[in-house]
């Protein structure tokens, strides 16, 4: 069936991401949801440090570049001062799950009424593909040359499950490895923003993304790895549903 699909106005003309980078898909999904909700004009984006911060230039709405890991702190203040606006952070896994884990934990604990979009591709991308807390066991990175060894580096951190103990308004994990998962992820993002609009509390959607460059795979192989390997460790679904 023929459909209409046009680039959201919140997304600028050219992104700076590598070929096959999942950020491009996820940025667009966020923009689509905000435009469909009619909230493009009042949305305020707080970006992280890392590849995620390349969203700043692309994003045609108001935005700020926070310090590494601290986007949830900056977003806390903005949302409290501007409760009528949509406020959201966009953070990668190096930023959110490593240096910024205290900020995301406490924003969740306080049940701040903003939304976080958490892009998890299992590596520090911009700095050259080092191990992140989310890197899978056995995965080779520029700081785990023989594969991540849990004897020395522990197990990959499951952020959504960790935050679930704090009972925020909404938590889900999606992926972009298939049309079905992309569409489901978009629904999760919509749920997260609706939770914010209804002042239910903190909402977060983790999204598993491919990083072909730092995984040293072709884009098609990287997307396949998300579905076959990454999702096996990070299960998809809504972990805390609205109203639970």
């Amino acid at each position: 069936m023929a459909v209409t699909r046009v680039k959201p106005k919140l997304i600028g003309e050219n992104n700076q991401y590598c070929s096959g980078c999942g950020h491009g898909i996820l940025n667009r999904l966020v923009a689509e949801v905000l435009e469909e909700l009619g909230r493009a004009d009042d949305a305020i984006l707080v970006t992280a440090v890392g590849c995620a911060c390349m969203m700043n230039e692309l994003w045609q709405g108001d935005n700020m570049q926070a310090a590494h890991g601290r986007a949830p702190a900056s977003a806390t203040a903005i949302k409290r001062l501007r409760p009528e606006n949509i406020v959201f952070t966009y953070q990668g896994d190096g930023d959110l799950s490593s240096i910024g884990i205290a900020e995301i934990l406490h924003a969740t604990a306080r049940n701040e009424k903003f939304t976080t979009i958490f892009a998890n591709n299992g590596v520090f991308g911009m700095t050259g593909g080092q191990m992140a807390p989310t890197t899978l066991v056995g995965q080779k990175t520029t700081t785990t040359h023989f594969g991540r060894d849990p004897q020395f580096t522990g197990m990959p951190v499951k952020i959504v499950e960790l935050l679930a103990t704090l009972k925020p308004a909404y938590l889900a994990r999606g992926s972009v490895d298939s049309i079905k998962n992309i569409n489901t992820t978009k629904k999760y993002i919509r749920n997260a923003f609706e939770a914010q609009i209804d002042s239910e509390g903190f909402s977060l959607v983790e999204v598993l993304l491919p990083c072909p460059t730092n995984w040293h795979l072709t884009p098609e192989q990287a997307l396949e790895r998300v579905g076959s390997t990454v999702e096996a460790y990070y299960p998809l679904g809504e972990v805390v549903k609205r109203g639970e």
Binding site: I44, V46, M64, A66, A67, R70, A73, S74, A75, T76, A77, I78, L81, R82, A102, E103, L105, H106
Partner: peptide
């Protein structure tokens, strides 16, 4: 009341940006 001095100053950063 922030969880740390780091969070406190970055809340200040956000408020100032707004």
């Amino acid at each position: 009341q922030a969880e740390s001095e780091l969070a406190a100053i970055n809340m200040v950063f956000g408020a100032a940006a707004a």
